[in-house]
Simulated assay, not measured.
Amino acid sequence: MASSDENPGAMPPGDGSVPPGKPMTVGQHIIDKGAQMMQSLKPIKKMSQHVCTFAIYSHDMTRQIHTHHYVTRLNQDFLQCAVYDSDDSTARLIGVEYIISERILDALPPDEQKLWHSHGYEITSGLWMNPRVPEMIEKPELKDLARTYGKFWCTWQVDRGDRLPLGAPALMMSPQGVNMGMIKAELVEKRDLKHNISSDELRKTRIDIPVPEATSPYPDYWMQTGKGFAIDIQNTEMKSRTPFP
């Protein structure tokens, strides 16, 4: 069993899914408010989109989660996302996803490409959506994103009840229109109800978005092999000298 699939054991004492810890003091609230006023927080302010979608654990595709991605675009070919478990003010930061264009993917070695997943089905099926953004505004961006690939590491497995980010990170895969890649209907219905949308209606409006033929056989590797990836943590000798110049 890989480390990313191990049960973390007993949780720290506490109530429900809230991380253990004492409530913030008045002084801490004041410090945070003051810091917000004086500091630039430039990386956070560059987050320009909120995407709501779903993800599947690579090592256990029976586990599927509803995710909220807050996206920063660094250039035409590269985006980075902070991933949360909700869009509430108390949302937990559960991982990070990097999104690259097909052009960048094709330049990567095969073993690296195996860690990435395609976004075409996720978008054309209506699973990927931007809350409160009209579809007609969103659609030009979706046509570009349908040709992109993501690498998503989940660092906090909240779906199994973890109240802290425990254990090894887990690699996540994207929804697909086949067997284990299909998102459970109850998850989609719950998401649609929360955001007052219909994934089926979104799918109909996106029927003209082309999903390109894959230029590489390595992304979505599980679809060709039936095998996923999991991280294993091992003890290792510490290097006394850096291998980099």
Rank of each mutant, 00 (worst) to 15 (best):
Glu112Tyr: 07
Leu127Tyr: 06
Tyr98Pro: 00
Glu122Met: 08
Asp111Phe: 14
Lys114Trp: 01
Ile100Phe: 04
Ser101Tyr: 04
Gly120His: 09
Pro110Ala: 14
Pro110Tyr: 07
Asp111Cys: 10
Arg103Thr: 11
Gly120Lys: 08
Tyr121Thr: 07
Thr124His: 01
Tyr121Arg: 02
His119Arg: 09
Ile123His: 07
Leu105Gly: 03
Ile123Val: 13
Glu112Val: 13
Gly126Leu: 10
Trp116Pro: 02
Gln113Cys: 08
Leu127Arg: 08
Gly126Lys: 10
Gly120Phe: 04
Pro109Leu: 09
Ile123Lys: 11
His119Val: 01
Thr124Val: 08
Ala107Asn: 09
Arg103Leu: 03
Gly120Tyr: 07
Gly126Asn: 15
His117Tyr: 11
Leu127Cys: 01
Ser125Thr: 01
Glu122His: 11
Gly120Ser: 15
Ile104Leu: 15
Asp106Lys: 12
Ala107Pro: 00
Arg103Phe: 04
Thr124Arg: 05
Ala107Trp: 04
Ser101Asp: 01
Glu122Cys: 06
Asp111Arg: 14
Leu108Asn: 00
Lys114Gln: 15
Asp111Tyr: 12
Thr124Glu: 02
Ile123Gly: 09
Lys114Ser: 06
Thr124Gln: 05
Gly126His: 13
Asp111Ile: 11
His117Gln: 15
Ile100Asp: 07
Pro110His: 09
Thr124Ser: 03
Ile123Glu: 14
Ile100Lys: 09
Ser101His: 02
Ser125Asp: 09
Arg103Asp: 12
Leu105Glu: 01
Ser118Cys: 08
Gly120Val: 03
Arg103Lys: 15
Tyr98Met: 10
Leu108Pro: 00
Met129Leu: 14
Pro110Leu: 07
Asp111Trp: 10
Leu115Ala: 07
Gln113Pro: 00
Glu112Gln: 13
Pro109Cys: 08
Met129Ala: 03
His119Tyr: 10
Ser101Leu: 01
Leu115Met: 11
Leu115Trp: 01
Tyr121Trp: 13
Ala107Phe: 02
Asp106Gly: 09
Ser125Arg: 04
Ile99Trp: 00
Leu105Pro: 00
Lys114Glu: 12
Trp128Pro: 00
His117Leu: 05
His119Met: 13
Leu105Cys: 04
Tyr121Asp: 13
Trp116Arg: 11
Gly120Ala: 15
Ser101Arg: 08
His119Thr: 10
Tyr121Gln: 08
Lys114Cys: 11
Asp111Asn: 14
Leu108Arg: 02
Ser125Leu: 09
Trp116Ala: 09
Ile123Ser: 09
Ile104Arg: 12
Ile123Asp: 13
Arg103Asn: 11
Pro109Asn: 06
Ser101Glu: 05
Tyr98Glu: 10
Met129Asp: 06
Ser125Phe: 10
Ile99Met: 10
Met129Gln: 11
His119Ile: 02
Leu105His: 01
Ile100Gly: 05
Ile104Pro: 00
Glu102Arg: 04
Trp128Ile: 05
Glu112Ile: 12
Gly126Pro: 15
Gly120Thr: 03
Pro110Cys: 07
Pro110Met: 05
Arg103Val: 08
Leu105Trp: 03
Trp116Gly: 05
Lys114Pro: 07
His119Lys: 06
Leu108Glu: 00
Ile99Lys: 02
Leu105Tyr: 02
Ala107Glu: 14
Tyr121Cys: 08
Met129His: 15
Ala107Arg: 13
Asp111Gly: 05
Glu102Leu: 00
Ile99Thr: 05
Ile123Gln: 12
Gly126Ile: 10
Ser118Leu: 12
Ile99Val: 14
Ile104Gln: 07
Ile104Gly: 02
